[in-house]
């Protein structure tokens, strides 16, 4: 029998605690509408955070994800609006936009990856730079305002966010699928093992015949693709993009990863922990909306406290003397 491990069980216990608080705070919390809303909202950060789990496990960091999401949103909207004149089928336009989105995400990740591995610049600096670049590009594309998706397409596309299958919104299914694939990839494949090894000690990885640069670059590409998947289900929600889109997503994604028990210095990652981390963050926001006890404006503060407490508990510092 596997022995009880606080590090693995911790995030799940925290989820149960937060959930219980939600139940106690407001009767509306348990309504099916609220629960499916929570799941759908958490899927954006959750999907981005699954990508971040790979990057962080392999010893990297990606601060550009929020700006990247805004940039990809902007590109998708501009592309779809432009294709209105040439293509009649709305579905075809949307599919083309999705393909383009995945391509842009992968290329953006590739750029982050190559700059860290080939140009040998610290990931923090590279992604701080691209974070500013993408944010500025989307603001420029929107001319300082907002890019809006053509209503005709928006009506068709909104099904992707609002559609329901077996009682759950589509985004939740996408989230689940990304999580399952992420879990298998990280824990059951050679690539996953290599991520752990590279994050744990690059030199050992190199002497174990692992192509360290390729593994790291692949994690950034995976992150880019995850951002693009999140964007694909995010765009139909609002049907617009601006300089304010995806703000602070990078921090929420990293917070979800850390709450889930992945170690920031690399070598140690957990997909299900990350999923739980994303759920906890969304739950907190939701509960603050449903109660008057704490102002909703303190959402960020509560999330910050949760991250710090989570890491404190994981380090086991409280166990020493």
């Amino acid at each position: 029998m596997p022995k009880f491990d606080l590090k693995t069980a911790g995030p799940f216990i925290a989820l149960v605690v937060v959930f219980t608080i939600g139940v106690l705070v407001n009767d509306a919390f348990l309504s099916s509408g609220n629960l499916s809303n929570i799941l759908a909202r958490s899927s954006f950060i959750g999907i981005v955070a699954i990508g971040a789990t790979f990057v962080i496990t392999a010893g990297g960091i990606d601060l550009s994800v929020g700006s990247m999401a805004a940039f990809i949103s902007g590109c998708m909207i501009l592309l779809m609006n432009a294709l209105m004149d040439t293509i009649d089928s709305m579905v075809a336009i949307i599919i083309l936009a999705i393909i383009a989105s995945l391509g842009i995400g992968a290329v953006a990740g590739l750029i982050n990856g190559l700059l860290t591995t080939k140009a040998k610049i610290e990931a923090f600096i590279v992604t701080l730079g691209t974070m500013g670049i993408y944010r500025s590009l989307v603001t420029y594309m929107a001319d300082g305002g907002t890019l809006s998706l053509n209503f005709t397409i928006g009506d068709v596309y909104s099904e992707v966010y609002y559609g329901v299958f077996l009682g759950l919104p589509y985004p939740v299914w996408v989230f689940l699928a990304v999580a399952v694939i992420g879990y298998v990839l990280l824990n059951m494949t050679v690539f996953g093992r290599h991520c752990f090894a590279v994050g744990s000690n690059e030199s050992v990885a190199r002497y174990s015949a692992i192509n360290v640069d390729r593994v790291k670059t692949a994690t950034y590409m995976l992150q880019g693709v995850c951002v693009s998947i999140a964007t694909i289900i995010y765009v139909p929600r609002l049907g617009s993009a601006s300089g304010q889109t995806g703000i602070l997503w990078e921090l929420e994604a990293i917070a979800a990863v850390i709450i889930g028990g992945t170690v920031l210095k690399g070598g140690y990652g957990r997909i299900w922990g990350t999923v739980v981390g994303a759920l906890i963050l969304t739950l907190i926001g939701n509960i603050l909306n449903l109660t008057d006890a704490v102002s909703n404006y303190l959402n960020g503060a509560v999330q910050g406290i949760i991250v710090i407490v989570a890491v404190y508990l994981q380090r086991g510092a409280w166990r020493r003397d």
């Binding site: 752990f196 000690n201 050992v204 070598g267």
Partner: peptide
């Protein structure tokens, strides 16, 4: 210690790292 083994990883993990293929 610096290039041979991942000291904080398990024995099986270390053992198979060079021959996963």
């Amino acid at each position: 210690k610096g290039s041979g083994l991942l000291l904080e990883k398990g024995l099986v993990f270390n053992f198979s790292l060079f021959s996963l293929h």
